[in-house]
């Protein structure tokens, strides 16, 4: 089978990706070599016509949009932040969390001032505050967002909140929910057309599996 005939699947490195792979496995798209401990980057099951690879979670949509992957698993947060031109075929209902505005417990919002917002998701934050006609100053950070309000770098943060434990332990609290997040099955638009039968079948089997869980 030639390289192009296979379905290429980009999985996000980490817990979510492993969980998602288990769903693919249960749906009949197993690839035993993925469980072997080695430094390989690509795993394939020629008989099933599938090929998996692990990529950085925020890169999944790039692989899919540019067609290097036909299918991918991406968080809704990443999709909203990068607005890729791809199909969002199913909500996997896993990796559930929410995008929220959080701040110090004693913070009192003063609408008189420009709000300083620290975040890893500048586009989501801008869109949210735009819809409220609020002037903001975006501070783009790449990690440890919770530090920003504690050190006075920002007034609030826009970040993913799962249980809120990290926030509470650092004297912070979530104030507003912007949007609920979960993992999505995404597909390249052109692959969807040329490999339609395979992708549609896969999507159906994955959705069935999700319902079972």
């Amino acid at each position: 089978m030639s390289l192009k005939q296979m379905i290429n699947i980009a999985l996000p490195k980490g817990r979510l990706g492993e969980k998602a792979y288990r769903v693919f496995e249960a749906a009949g798209y197993e690839c035993p070599s993925i469980r072997e401990e080695n430094r390989k980057l690509i795993f394939e099951n020629e008989e099933k016509g599938i090929r998996y690879f692990w990529v950085k979670p925020s890169d999944v949509v790039i692989y899919v949009e540019r067609g290097a992957a036909d299918i991918g698993i991406a968080g809704k947060d990443i999709i909203l932040e990068y607005s890729p031109d791809i199909y969002e075929l199913a909500d996997l209902g896993m990796g559930k969390c929410r995008m929220a505005v959080a701040c110090k417990r004693d913070f009192c919002d003063n609408r008189d001032k420009t709000l300083r917002v620290a975040t890893k998701f500048p586009n989501i934050a801008k869109k949210y505050y735009n819809s409220q006609s609020r002037e903001i100053d975006i501070i783009k950070l790449n990690g440890s967002i919770e530090l920003a309000p504690i050190l006075g770098l920002s007034d609030v943060i826009v970040d993913i909140v799962e249980t809120g434990k990290t926030l509470y332990e650092n004297d912070l609290e979530p104030r507003e929910t912007i949007v609920d997040i979960s993992a999505r099955l995404v597909a390249n638009k052109v692959s969807y057309k040329f490999k339609n039968a395979e992708i549609t079948a896969m999507c159906e089997r994955i959705s069935e599996q999700i319902k079972k869980n």
């Binding site: 949009e65 540019r66 040329f194």
Partner: peptide
């Protein structure tokens, strides 16, 4: 229109 091998219309 799409052709195989180009990931965009």
């Amino acid at each position: 229109g799409f052709v195989r091998g180009i990931p965009d219309g």
